[in-house]
Design a protein around this nucleic acid. Sequence first.
DNA 1: GCGACAG
DNA 2: ATCTTGTCGC
Length: 231
Amino acid sequence: MTTVRIPAGWPATEEEARAVQDELRARVVLDEPGPPPGAGRVTGVDVAYDDELDVVAAAAVVLDAASLDVVAEATAVGRISFPYVPGLLAFREIPTVLAALDALPCPPGLVVCDGYGLAHPRRFGLASHLGVLTGLPTIGVAKNPFTFTYDDPDAPRGSATPLLAGGDEVGRALRTRTGVKPVFVSVGHRVTLDNACAHTLALTPEFRLPETTRRADALCRGALQDATTPH
DNA sequence: GCGACAG
DNA sequence: ATCTTGTCGC
């Protein structure tokens, strides 16, 4: 486990944070297909908080894409770097997530984030932001539709419908388990939407949420507990 | 103007 | 995200 400081010059106000998004947005790459699903490695990242104690813990868990076995994992803890503001989630999570990714002993491959990428008020959600900062291919898989609209996909696993912002398809509502509420997939960086959905299906042979986020969620919760429990 | 809003 | 018991079901 590593400890992080909030970076110098980190945005202190919502206005500054939005300005950073507006500048970095131009660096998102959308014309690469991304790594093929089911091969190589896939990494899940997630974060847990204790607002009382001002502690944040992040986890990165690397899986073999074919077997979904855990290949490597790392955690990081720090102080909370930004309040939760819809549309500015990245500023709350990114410093600690970057530290966890840096602590991995191997390359992460595709990174799967909890939240959104292009499906964002300014088209620059957490997954896109993390992709631009690291150069890694990233996707976002969210549990809720945020402010977007969609028609319910057909019941069978694999069914999908467009996630719409006005008239634009910014992501997809994807049924990962037959008859269960869909997840909401969007592109982060250097991956197409079709490929992002294919990866998401490859990561959900058993549960609604990707194995990557399930593993990362469990790990960062434990790390928060360790960082928060008196010894 | 008011409410809703990833995690 | 987090606060939180039991309970239904594979």
